[in-house]
Amino acid sequence: MNPKTPHSIPDLTSQIRRDIIRMVTAAKSGHVGGSLGSTDFLTVLFTEFLDQDPAQWRRDGQNMDMFFLSIGHISPLFYSLLARMGYFPVKELASFRNLGSRLQGHPSVENGLPGVHVASGSLGQGLSVACGAALSKRLTGDPHRVYVLMGDGESEEGQVWEAAMFAAHHKITNLTAITDWNGQQIDGPVNEIGGVGDLNAKWTAFGWRVLECDGHNPDDIRKAYRLAAEPGEKPVMILMHTNMGHGVDFMTGSHKWHGKAPSAEQEALALAQLKETLGDF
């Protein structure tokens, strides 16, 4: 039994995927594809690895692990996971993208939403911020770890590689970076759009320890997080192989669901594939 949640991973991920579909359908906008694809490995991170007590969460991250979401557009997943883990009330998910909501289209710190350290949405910036937080922890003697989630399309941004060089040069080893390698971006398959190519070879060449993992297999995910946290001389990148839209058959594996809201009929079709385990918001 996990001390942080009484629920099993399958129960949690099924409910979170329902939340994602329902939030984006209600808001008539938002990003379902990447949210569904990252659900499994991010749920395992928050429930079994991230050393944080939701009730004690602080924006300055003192004496706790920190998580940075560089790909701010998968906010539906981030918000649902935070709510289901107890960072804020589940019913607040109904306010996603509404006027005055703490659940902005992309994460914001302006209204003090627990779980959000910095704003994100404009891509390419999260790894740099995570490097700063990790260096700060090292300076303070705080042994906790810093996690950051990035996207494969995001790695077309030049700043990602500035940060990659910086992290290796400064031997930032209290950092686990994760790339959701789903192979899709807004305009099409990543390798047809930006030529990202072999991410393993690239990160290895930049001086990182690189792990690859099936991002939908909880045991494989656990193994990767454990290996990443082992002492070493290099920063660690986990390349998570996922399918965009995973969990809903007609959304799986296509860039067409990167940033599109389902219709009412599509919502019903999707929800029929996802068991309501913890009660809808």
Partner: peptide, 18 residues
């Protein structure tokens, strides 16, 4: 290094952590 965008992000991460 000659990587100002990263530097500003690193600074932001340091600032958030105190």
């Amino acid at each position: 290094g000659i990587a100002e965008a990263n530097m500003m992000g690193v600074a932001a991460g340091m600032a958030v952590t105190g």
